[in-house]
Every structure is written in C-alpha cells, then in structure tokens.
C-alpha cells in the first residue's frame, strides 16, 4: 500500500469514527427521549456540547497527570480506531489483530483512571474502582466470545474474520453460525458501554458521576469525545465479529446503529444494579452462554 494512502486512511478512520460516534450519541439521547416521551436534543447537540466544553474560559486542572489522563483517554481510542477495519479501509488492522485491539481499548480507561486519581476526589476513586470492577465483570464473557470467534475463524486478524463472513454470505455471519456467542457478546457489550442497568461507576446520585466528578471544561469535553469513540468502537467491533462487517458504508453504518440501538433501548428502561449484582449477572448468564457457544465452536 502506498504510504500516502495509508496515512490518509489513518487520518480518516478516527475522523469518521468521531463523526459517526457523535451521531451515535445523538441516537442514544434521542432513543432515551423517545422512550421517556420527550422530544430530545437537536441534531447537532453532541457537537454543541463538545464545542462548549472546550471553549470554557476557566478550566480547572488538578495537575499534569490530570491533563495527561485526558489525552490518553482520547488518544488511546484514536489509535484503536486505526485497528478497526471499515469498508474500504483496513488501516493497520493486520498488524495488531483483535487481541491487541482489545488491549488497546483499555488504554483510555487506564488514562482516565490516572487522571481521575490525580483529581484527588474519593468519589472519582470509588468510580474508578467500580469501573475496573465492572471491567472485570464484562471482560470475562467478552474474552470468551472473542476466543470463540477467533478460534472459529482460525485467526486473530479482524480483516480476515470479516472477509470470511462476507465470503460466505449471510449464513456465514458470526451471529448465524454462533448465535450463543452473539448473545453473550451483546450482553457483554452492553455492560461495557456503562449504561443502565450497568452504570455502577457513574451512579450520579450516589458518587456524583464517579470518574467525571472533577472534570470541567475541556476535561469533560475530552470525555465526551471519548464517549463518541467508545460507542463507535464497541458497535463496530460487534458488527465486525458477528454481522459480517460492512461491504458498503450504508450497510456498515446501518448495522452499527442497529446494533447499538439494542442495548441503548434496553438501558433506559432499567434502574441500576449494585456492583456485586452486576458481577453475579455477568459471571453467570453471558459466561454460561459463551462457554456453551465455545463448546459448539470447538
């Protein structure tokens, strides 16, 4: 591949991710509004929020690590996007593979955790402790799912996994071949978004939005950007693993938005679990489904 082309891809992929991610945030808020019989925010609301937050006159920092944490949170996702193939663009997906992507997606959380730690607010620390606990909860079914898919495909290369599904048509889609894994993956994905009923680490009424408690201005803005990326990455990863990726941008985006719509629709119907209930739930049903699914794959 020509280097210019590669550089173009590497720039475009995060950019597209960001734009699509903003639309996903909008969709999420609109769905919430529709469920609550409200009108919901205008079309560009996510952009307004991000611009406003970055244009705050006074920005409260708690130290250098606070700043670096936010940079890591954004930068980690920007890097992760280049490992996630989209129609027509593979970026450097072949040089990393799915395990690397999975671990790269932990970098933003790590950055956030560091930044929040430096904020010296116990609410934030509790939030991070809970977030890590939640990660322990949903990553276990998630890795089972990843294992199953990668083993079935015989590769950890996302490009190959997508290509295999597309070559076989609908019947070769992960969701059709491995329905149990697809269900387990969906639950794990829902939990990884940190939406109700799994939002134990945000818990506004309890620990004042946990990690975000000391975030103001561009710090919060950075997290809003990160949220766009997070929604995009999660849904696209799911689409790539189970729904055959996308041949064109249209069906790619359609699938991504639809996939995301499922957990989001569920989310606004429920209150919050307690931490141990979340763990119990995650370690029971999705793990069980996932293991049975893997057994079928083997």
């Amino acid at each position: 591949m020509a280097p210019m082309e590669l550089i173009l891809e590497l720039t475009l992929m995060p950019l597209i991710a960001f734009l699509v991610g903003m639309m996903m945030v909008l969709m999420m808020r609109r769905i919430a509004a529709k469920i609550q019989r409200r009108v919901g925010p205008p079309l560009l609301q996510p952009l307004y929020d991000i611009v406003k937050l970055h244009s705050k006159r006074t920005q409260i920092s708690h130290g250098l690590i606070h700043d670096i944490g936010i940079i890591m949170a954004m930068g980690g996702y920007i890097a992760a996007e280049t490992l996630l193939p989209v129609p027509g663009m593979n970026g450097i997906a072949e040089k990393g593979g799915i395990i690397t992507l999975l671990y790269l997606m932990m970098i933003p959380s790590l950055g956030l955790a560091l930044g929040v730690g430096q904020c010296a607010n116990p609410n934030g620390s509790i939030g991070i402790a809970r977030a890590l606990t939640a990660m322990l909860a949903y990553d276990i079914p998630l890795v089972i799912v990843i294992f199953g898919v990668a083993y079935a495909a015989g590769t950890t290369n996302l490009v190959d996994i997508i290509a295999q599904q597309q070559a076989g048509g609908f019947a070769a889609w992960g969701a059709v071949e491995m329905p149990l894994l697809a269900i387990a993956g969906l639950i794990a994905m829902h939990a990884s978004l940190g939406k109700q009923p799994f939002e134990i680490y945000i818990a506004p009424a309890e620990i004042a939005t946990g990690p975000m408690v000391e975030m103001s201005g561009k710090y919060l803005g950075g997290l809003f950007v990160m949220q766009c990326f997070q929604l995009y990455t999660t849904s696209v990863l799911y689409v790539s693993l189970f729904l055959g990726g996308g041949t064109t941008w249209f069906d790619f985006l359609l699938k991504s938005f639809l996939v995301l719509a499922i957990p989001v629709s569920i989310a606004y119907l429920f209150p919050r679990y307690r931490t141990e209930d979340l763990l119990r739930l995650m370690w029971k049903w999705p793990v069980m489904l996932g293991l049975i699914g893997v057994a079928f794959v083997l």
Partner: peptide, 8 residues
Amino acid sequence: LFAGFGIG
C-alpha cells in the same frame, strides 16, 4: 498509539 496521544 503515540500518534493518537499526539492528536489528543
């Protein structure tokens, strides 16, 4: 990753 950090 570091390019991402840079953009961030």
